[in-house]
């Protein structure tokens, strides 16, 4: 009994120590508020941002950019991935260029897109869409390519109707890898959106942190960092949940 309690509490030890040190260090006045503020100040700042509705505005801005850009990018990625896998012509003409552009990290396109589209919403949507497009297109391509010929032959032997083949074979075979691609795309889209907002934005979590940095508001920045992590985590877990529900037949 006692040992299981110890086991339970063990993971809390290090975070607890860090928190205690943080308390201890900030309770004296060795530190200026520009370097570290007490945990309570961060919490206060969070409550303040929440009460004023400021936080909600930033969140809304970031998440709507993310969802819209991701929707566009992943939709195009799905379509392009299928084309790339099914059409030899598309593969011959667009494949090499696709592979080449894929080598460039999304973040490197930020300055180019700013010069082309300006610093308004356009470039943020474009970069988010770009970040989502490639992993989704790639996963879709691989998934469609990966449908085993053997299974299709089995379907032919049993004379399954095309609809059966679609629902019983093609979708179950392709959905899991495509979902993985979508998850990767969503994560990358979020990472690059934060970067884009740090660079140039009127609102959004990234802009909130960047303002905090410029005004030496460490509490705001810390709230931002925590939220960035939390949102990334929630997005990832959300897609994983969908994966688990849709792909129950697969051994985990």
């Amino acid at each position: 009994m006692r040992s299981t309690l110890q086991q339970r509490l063990l993971p809390l030890l290090v975070p607890g120590l860090i928190l205690a040190t943080w308390f201890a260090v900030t309770s004296g006045d060795d530190f200026t508020a520009q370097v570290l503020v007490p945990p309570a100040a961060v919490l206060d700042s969070f409550n303040e941002l929440l009460a004023s509705g400021e936080l909600a505005d930033h969140l809304r801005a970031s998440l709507s950019r993310l969802l819209l850009g991701f929707g566009i990018g992943s939709g195009l990625g799905l379509g392009f991935g299928i084309l790339l896998a099914r059409s030899a012509l598309v593969n011959a003409f667009a494949g090499p260029f696709f592979q080449a552009v894929r080598q460039v990290p999304s973040i490197a396109f930020l300055p180019m897109l700013i010069l082309l589209l300006g610093v308004d919403e356009g470039f943020k949507l474009a970069i988010v869409a770009k970040a989502a497009f490639f992993p989704v297109a790639l996963a879709t391509h691989d998934a469609v390519k990966g449908i085993s010929k053997g299974w299709l032959e089995v379907a032919a032997i049993y004379r399954l109707s095309p609809l059966r083949v679609l629902f019983r074979l093609i979708l179950p075979a392709t959905v899991p890898p495509v979902l993985t691609g979508l998850r990767l795309g969503l994560t990358r889209a979020w990472i690059v959106l934060v970067a884009a907002e740090l660079m140039a934005a009127e609102n959004g979590i990234g802009q909130m942190m960047e303002m905090g940095r410029q005004m030496f508001r460490i509490d705001t920045v810390m709230v931002g960092v925590a939220l960035t992590g939390l949102i990334g985590f929630a997005l990832d877990q959300g897609v994983r949940l969908a994966e688990r529900r849709l792909v129950r037949w697969k051994a985990v």
Binding site: V35, I191, V194, M209, V225, F233
Partner: peptide
């Protein structure tokens, strides 16, 4: 595990301040 959730560049403003 908790720290891993923050995208690498998400730390930038904090590290920048420090």
């Amino acid at each position: 595990q908790a720290f891993r959730q923050v995208p690498p560049l998400g730390w930038l403003p904090l590290v920048g301040l420090w």
